[in-house]
């Protein structure tokens, strides 16, 4: 059974409807599985894709994970959430992470296709980072070109907590990702590193929100991507300074490489200020590989595909370096290499 989700990745401040960036719609595949119980402390955490996606995930949960790092402890989980998906098994994973005071948590979630059939994946991850905690969530999606996928994430940060998300959206037919970080704690900080690859008729729809409510909070969101074929991508990046978030700083930057005249790129940077004493910046570069740079790379014997791969990998390198498994890092590079050869 399919379920249509109509209010996905909603822009925090709506703009002209005809631009088509205010929200997205998503057809999700119900799993017929039981409802995941979300403890109250996680219930208040909002997510980037919005309530409809989060509720759908909670009501169709096939895989449920709870990670709780005790105060001062370190947890690295790079193994237990690796999914290899196939048609007959739509997967919806719900993961709740609580990093208590001074703890450190690194979690890897990866999604690949076991075969070439169309599959469905939905994910919901909610994270609480208490005072002084450090959390890194890494999500790598390399599904086949027939699959649908969404990953919905929400963070709640306490005093001095640092949290970051690394998302590699590299596959799928329809790929949706959203993340909302609520920087509630004094001097809390949030980072987002997103890389994406659009090819064929892939639709990529992303929504990132850093909501600053605490004083002296910091957010830094970076996105880098490459678009081929008829791919269609929207990246919404919002820095939302709420009254009281004085002396807070938010940066966002997106670099998109366009390799096809038919590819569609939409970038929506948004800075909302109801607090005056803040510093918000955004920047975006969109374009082809500089012709002289391409000539330089070709002059050293690289084929055009190799040169493109090198430039894309260079853009993706900072995010790939944060994947806590070198074999998966290599697999991502190999995956990109195969895709470049097809272009």
């Amino acid at each position: 059974m399919e379920e249509q989700l109509k209010n996905i990745n909603t822009l925090p401040a709506l703009t002209w409807n005809h631009l088509g960036v205010n929200r997205a719609e998503l057809i999700a595949q119900q799993t017929g599985k039981s409802t995941a119980s979300i403890p109250e402390e996680f219930g208040r955490i909002k997510t980037g894709m919005g309530e409809e996606a989060a509720d759908f995930a909670a009501h169709n949960c096939t895989d449920y994970h709870v990670i709780e790092a005790e105060a001062g402890k370190e947890i690295i989980d790079a193994e237990s959430m690796r999914y290899s998906l196939a048609d007959e098994h739509p997967t919806v994973d719900v993961t709740l992470i609580h990093a208590h005071e001074g703890s450190s948590v690194t979690v890897l979630q990866s999604y690949t296709s076991a075969d070439n059939t169309a599959c469905f994946h939905g994910g919901l991850t909610k994270i609480i980072a208490d005072k002084g905690a450090w959390v890194r969530l890494v999500q790598v999606q390399m599904l086949n070109n027939r699959s649908r996928h969404f990953d919905d994430v929400g963070f709640l940060l306490g005093d001095g907590a640092h949290a970051e998300i690394v998302q590699a959206e590299l596959g799928g037919k329809d790929a949706f990702a959203g993340c909302l970080a609520l920087l509630e704690g004094y001097q809390s900080s949030f980072g987002a590193d997103t890389i994406y690859l659009g090819e064929e008729d892939r639709r990529l729809d992303m929504n990132y929100i850093a909501r600053h409510t605490g004083r002296k909070t910091t957010s830094d969101m970076t996105a880098a991507g490459a678009l081929f074929g008829h791919s269609d991508k929207i990246y919404r990046g919002t820095i939302d300074f709420i009254r009281g978030a004085s002396h807070s700083v938010g940066h966002e930057v997106e670099n998109t490489l366009l390799f096809s005249p038919e590819a569609r790129n939409r970038t929506v940077p948004l800075i909302l200020c109801s607090e005056e004493d803040v510093d918000g910046q955004h920047a975006a570069t969109i374009g082809k590989i500089n012709a002289q740079r391409l000539f330089y790379l070709l002059s050293r014997g690289l084929t055009e595909a190799q040169a493109k791969q090198l430039v894309i990998e260079a853009q993706f390198a900072p995010a790939i370096a944060k994947v806590p498994d070198t074999a998966l890092q290599d697999a991502i590079k190999e995956y990109l290499g195969r895709r470049m050869q097809l272009d």
Partner: peptide, 24 residues
């Protein structure tokens, strides 16, 4: 012939203004 094929034949040029390639 394309540039990369010429390079593989053994032609090289030291550029007057070499390109910067961030990330590599």
């Amino acid at each position: 012939e394309k540039t990369d094929a010429r390079a593989r034949r053994g032609i090289f040029m030291s550029f007057q203004s070499p390109e910067e390639v961030p990330g590599v």
